[in-house]
């Protein structure tokens, strides 16, 4: 039996695309690209199944392979590191040639076997699929192969359990709770750690307050009130700078200097950010 010309056209197009996609598996540098190629091959296969009078398998192919298996692959790829490009340089001596020769040899053998085999003319599945394809399958599956069916169920459950067991991670320490964190903080007090939340940055009229330290009750700037990132980048402003610009403004406006109003105009210099081990963490 020969196929219809429509099917031949479908096969011609799909087969070409599939081989190209499959070769993508062989040559793609990134694993994600390879995975997408395989997804494509699988979908094409589903179409070919339908063309081969196996609509049920076609659907299952899409659901199981494309929907579940390949998504699992992608999931693991994300887990393992999606951006890690696979080096294509061969490390085992001669392995590349061996692989190519064996792959080609396998192809030659298989195709020669097919070519030399005189297959009977295709019977077609019209009779078998008379009661719709799923019904026909179900009769065989739950008839002749019912034990195999049960065994495969057991296998699936076992595999699921195996997946759980293999990826299970043993907890090595006690779980961190709010109570334990509070205890930690209290324990760290002697090292100079603050019990309370860190102070907010200073607020001044002239500038964005995030980069200016707040002033403590004693009038001293609180270094650690500036966010850590700004301090690391060196973008915080010192209190002296802030006061200096205020003085400049006042002189522009002809107002008397603030310093005169204060008993002690000298503002001590703020240390450059260096020793901040105890204050650098800001929850």
């Amino acid at each position: 039996m020969t196929t219809t010309s429509g099917e031949a056209a479908l096969f011609g197009i799909l087969a070409t695309l599939m081989v190209i996609a499959a070769l993508g598996l062989l040559f793609a540098k990134r694993a994600v690209h390879a995975a997408m190629c395989v997804v494509f091959v699988m979908i094409c296969l589903a179409i070919l199944y339908v063309a081969n009078e196996a609509p049920f398998l076609g659907i299952v192919q899409v659901v199981v392979y494309t929907g579940a298996v390949m998504m699992l692959f992608l999931f693991v790829l994300m887990l393992v590191g999606i951006d890690a490009a696979d080096s294509l340089t061969e490390t085992i001596k001669g392995q590349r040639w061996i692989g190519i020769v064996f792959g080609a040899g396998l192809l030659v053998v298989l195709v020669s076997v097919l070519a030399s085999t005189d297959l009977p003319a295709a019977v077609g599945l019209e009779d078998a699929n008379a009661n719709t394809n799923p019904t026909g399958l179900a009769k065989i599956l739950f008839g002749d192969y019912v034990i195999g069916m049960e065994v495969i169920g057991v296998l699936l459950v076992t595999a699921a359990l195996a997946g759980l067991v293999l990826t299970h991670r043993q907890r090595l320490g006690a779980r961190t709770t709010q109570r334990s964190m509070a205890a930690e903080r209290v324990a760290a007090l002697p090292e100079g750690r603050l019990l309370t939340p860190l102070p907010a940055p200073g607020v001044y009229a002239q500038n964005n307050a995030m980069d200016t330290p707040a002033l403590g009750p004693d009038g001293q700037p609180l270094e650690h009130s500036v966010p850590r990132v700004l301090r690391i980048r060196g973008q915080q402003r010192t209190a002296a700078e802030v006061l200096g610009s205020e003085e400049t403004l006042r002189s522009h406006l002809g107002l008397p200097a603030v310093g005169t109003a204060l008993d002690d105009p000298q503002i001590p210099a703020i240390d450059e950010p260096s020793d901040h081990t105890s204050t650098e963490e800001r929850d």
Binding site: G124, A128, I140, D144
Partner: peptide
């Protein structure tokens, strides 16, 4: 399966 007309 298609060639032999058998769903097995």
């Amino acid at each position: 399966a298609r060639i032999h007309g058998d769903l097995t």
